[in-house]
Every structure is written in C-alpha cells, then in structure tokens.
Design a protein around this nucleic acid. Structure first.
Lengths: 333, 333
DNA sequence: CTGAAAGCGCTTACAG
DNA sequence: CTGAAAGCGCTTACAG
C-alpha cells in the first residue's frame, strides 16, 4: 500500500507539504503542488482513512442507527439521508440495532468504537446507555421521525396523532361509522397514531370498540394481512379501516381480497406514510404523506449545523403532513 | 475519550497487557485480567477502531458495493448479506455507486481510502479501474447475483437466461402466443433475461416481434407502468406479458388496470425475482424465485474463506432457481 | 507471563 | 512557504 511518505519521496518534498495539498491548504508553492498532484495521480494514492481519523479529532463520518429490518418508509428516508450526507461531504456508517436489548447493546458497542462526528437515529432505541453515551461525549444527534423526551437531541417529525386524526376524520366524513383499526405494538408512533384514531371517533361521537382494533406484530404486509384476519374473526363488522402504516394497509387489502371483499367497494382503507408503492397498488392507496424529502434534508442540515457550530441548541420540529386522497376510499353506500 | 493507557493505569498494568486481554489472548494471569476487565467495564471503554485498523493489516471490515438506488430485490439481498457478515464478526461499509462514471469513480476513491478485508459487489460496476484496484491489492471479492468475465472474483448467481426461458415457456404452455416483454437497458441480467424470452419463443416457433418489447429506464414500478403504456401504443396486441423484474411486473399490472385490463383475465403477467411484495399483491404474482437467502449466505461464506485461506481460487457458482406459480397467470381463453 | 519500545500513516504545532 | 518532530491509540515483536 502506497503511503504519504512514498508521495513525498516521489515529489521530492516533505510529508508535511504533501499533507498540506491533501487538505487543500493554499500555502504551497505552485511547482511543488504540481509535482505532488502528479505523484498522487500517477500512483493512484488515496490517504488512509483510519490514520487520518485517528489523528484528527473529527472523522467526517456520521452514524445512522437503523432498525434490524427496516420497512419501506425507513428505506426511502434512509436513501435520502445518505444522499444528503454525501453532499455535505460526510462518510456514513450504519448501525443496525435489533429490537431486543442485546441487539441495542451490540449496536452501542460498535458505535463507541468509531469516533463519529454526529449521528442520525431512525430507530427508537430503548437502552438508556445509548443516550448517556451520546450526551457524555457531546455527539450531535438528530432523531429522525420521532421525538424522545429527555434526550438532548434535535428531532424532526410530524404530529403523528393529528395526522391519524385527519385520516380517520376523512373516513367519517365519507359516512363511515364502523371503522376498524390496525395498530402496532412497537415504537411511539403506534400509540400516537392510535390516539389520533380515538380522537377522531370521539369528535364524531362514535364509541371506541376494542373489537375493531387489531395489533400487528410486524410493520410489514404479512403483519397487516394477519391483523386483518384477526378482525374478521372478532365478531364485529366494519366498512372502513385505518391502518397505521401503508404496508399494513396493503397487507390488509390483500387479506380482504382473500375474503372476497373489495376495496373500496366493501371496505374503505386508509394508510399512513405514503410509501412509493402506495401510488402503484391496485387500488391506489389513500394515505397520509410525510414530507420525506424535507425530513431527510432537514435532518442532515441540522446535524451539520450542530456539528459545526458546536453550541447549537437542540430543537424539536414538527413538519406539516399532507393527506393524499386516492382510490382505496369511497363514500359509504 | 478514554484510551488504552487509561485502562492500563487504572488496572496497574502495561498497555501491552491490556492489549492482550482486549484481543483475547490467553497468556495473561487471572488477577491482572480481572483488574483489566473491571477497569474496562467501569469506564465503558471500547478500543478505537481507527487506531486498531491502522496498525493491524486487516480491518475486519467488508465493503458492500451497492447501486445508488437499490430495488427491492437488492434491498432484501443486502439485509441478508449484512446479517451474515455480522455473524462472522465483520464490520460492513457501504459504497454506493451511482451508475454514471463519476459516481463509480467517487465510489472507488472512498473504497481505496479504507483498507477492506474483502468486498461484496451487488452492483455491476463498469469502471475498469475498479477491477484493477481489487486485483492489484489482492482484495478478496465476491460478485453477488452476476458474473463478470475477466474478473478474478468469485461469483454467485443464477442462470438468468434459463430462468427467463422457463418463465416464458410457462406462458406458452398456457396457450399464449402473443407474449409481450418488458425489458431493461442496464446491467447484464437485462440482456440475459431478454435472451431467455427469445429462446422460449424460438423453441415454440413463435416469431420475435420487436413491437412486443418495451424497455424500462428504471427497474421500479413507475418504469414498469411507463413501459406498459408504450406497449399499448405500439400497435400490437398481447395476451401475456413477461417483465424482467417483479417491480416492473407490478408496475405494469397497475398500468393495465388503468387501461381497464384485468390480470390474469385479459393479460397473464409473469415477473422475475420473487420479492416479498409479490406474494401480497392483488393478484399475487407468478414469478421466478432466486434463492436469495442461499445467495446471501454463500456470498459471505465464500468471501470469508477467500479472506482466511488467502489462496483460494475464484469460482463461479450458478444456484438453482425455482418457478413460482401464483395468481397473475391463466390459461388462454 | 509481562513491559518498554518501535511503528502503523497520518496531522499539527513549531521553528525557520 | 517548508520541513523535522511529536503524537494520535493501538499492536507486535523483542527481551526478560
């Protein structure tokens, strides 16, 4: 492996000078600079990142904490974040945290071994040591898509319960009174979206009926299908359904088809997240759209300012969501 | 940041000894080992990876080269690979390569800055410097899901053309003669799958009709929908459709619905890849299943043996695919 | 079994 | 504008 010494020798200068041009400092005479650049080009030399990271206090790398298995919404967000991070000149390291405690612990350990300039968390970690580590070492942190009390971190999110309320109110406006819900058990958004569902019912004077609520174990289509089947067996009936994520909604549509129920003919379905898929499904899904691109951009921009300003205060920002009417919902007949 | 020196001081030993227990060498007396372990636990110390990587010749990290925007198939594969890599004790670094030349160049540069133990490539890079770098530095490499002539790398893949032939032959067996195809322009699998399509037609004595073939620009659902619309405008007719990826197939089903054409009633559709989504779509998609889990496992296992044995020869392995009959195909009426 | 010392490939004052 | 030197946090012979 070719090193900075080789370049210095080749160009007939000291390593300090090579280092200077490597780090685009302008205080190097043109002729030396050119000889150095030529040597670099000729050898295809690229500085060893490990060495550079070790000596400088910053690593120019940002960590992204992700769930072990990420859903489509997170996948899209992650792409956007990654892209912007690259624009800002950051490297990215990924830290997958399984939901169990061991997984989070292993994740934290890996995190500690790297010196990160900052970190973006896409996955609600439960472990308190996580927050402790970030706080003790003053690592700038952005929580993307959720809030967390007690964390000294900037948070970008939407108002989950308001959005859910909006979605369910729409179903009510269409004349539906028997509205089922597919919720979840993990992460704070599940309780917040369920809260929105309850608020909407309350506002319309509809009694909450727990037989109309099923909880999915996993936020994927299979989870949605399974939950729908539970609802079918629970001795209740409904003409509309609110699923707290699009994947759940799409899975439920699949299961409804298996029960010979059509959407929106027999059941109106509204989802949440507006993943790419939702505009290509049959029928296209009515849903809540999170401002994904803005959330990603903003997370990166705010993290960057946190990193560079060094004394920025954490903020909690609720971005506006939008409601997207498509073909999976209809007026109650 | 707490360092190995601090631990040494705390435990009253030398850094060498601390290093020994850190690297699980057994030649350390029990009492010292315990004092060291206690100090580590108490301080939450984790060795600095950059320092460790710099001094040791291996980094225990494997690079994964991915396309800038990865489709669902790649996303699934990537999860599996990541998981197994972790099992084997490797760290992973991701290198996203945009398809243009600049993107690949930037990707290569990042790659060079890290000292990787090995690399798994999920994305067909075109740049010759890529191969040169890997070969010159003897970096063990596995190509996952494709082959590449002239690369001294192990390759795990399926026989793309045979699989496509199988899919299209099935349509023919169902009585279809007017079979359209949605192909693509990028990556070798597109031409191979198209080749399989042509072979199947040939075997059945059906003339190849280029009006029945449309090419998607992107391997996503929108690309599939767009391509289907092209077919509708191309003054031809068809009762079956082979799309070279599931996402393309699903996008085409969406577009068919927009033309009031039902699947499989009016058009039988078969895809390729068997992504998760395909068993939850309405209708469920008939498709070719790549042995994703095995491919991921095998890529990692073979890479590991390449890394540890140091003189393993590259192999090219074609794994068996399976054909999955579901609801998107029907006998010609 | 253990420690002192050298060295990995860089950057960063410091002196000129 | 430039170079010699120190040092980042580890590991690895080497000597005992």
């Amino acid at each position: 492996m070719i090193s900075i010494k080789d370049i210095a020798k080749l160009a007939g200068v000291s390593v300090s000078t090579v280092s200077r041009v490597l780090n685009q400092q302008d205080n190097v005479k043109a002729d030396k600079r050119e000889r150095i650049l030529a040597a670099i080009k000729q050898t295809g030399y690229v500085p060893n990142r490990a060495a550079r990271d070790m000596v400088s206090k910053h690593t120019s790398t940002v960590g992204i904490v992700m769930p072990g298995t990420f859903n489509m919404f997170q996948r899209q967000l992650f792409s956007i974040v990654e892209h912007h991070l690259e624009q800002f000149g950051y490297h990215t390291s990924f830290y997958f945290a399984s939901t169990d405690e061991d997984g989070e612990l292993a994740c934290l350990k890996r995190l500690k071994a790297d010196r990160l300039d900052g970190i973006i968390i896409l996955h609600e970690v439960a472990l308190p040591e996580f927050r402790d580590h970030l706080e003790d070492n003053h690592i700038p942190t952005v929580l993307a898509t959720f809030e967390r009390e007690g964390w000294k971190a900037t948070s970008i999110h939407i108002s989950e319960d308001e959005a859910a309320l909006r979605a369910v109110s729409y179903l009510i406006k269409l004349g539906h009174r028997d509205i089922a819900c597919i919720g979840g058990t993990k992460y704070s958004f599940s309780s917040q979206r369920l809260l929105g569902y309850r608020k909407a019912l309350e506002q319309a004077g509809i009694a909450y009926d727990e037989r109309k609520v099923a909880f999915a174990d996993a936020y994927n289509m299979e989870g949605g299908a399974l939950a729908l089947n539970q609802l079918m067996e629970s001795n209740t009936n409904f003409t509309a359904l609110f699923a707290i994520t699009d994947e759940l909604a799409l899975g439920s549509i699949r299961a409804l088809a298996d029960h010979n129920l059509s959407v929106p003919g027999d059941v109106s379905v509204v989802g949440f997240d507006n993943i790419e898929l939702s505009s290509f499904s049959v029928p296209r899904l009515t849903t809540i759209s999170q401002p994904l691109v803005e959330m990603g951009q903003m997370s990166v921009a705010l993290l960057h300012s946190l990193i560079t300003s060094k004394n920025g205060l954490p903020v909690s920002i609720a971005l506006p969501f939008t409601f997207v009417e498509r073909d999976s919902t209809a007026q109650l007949r």
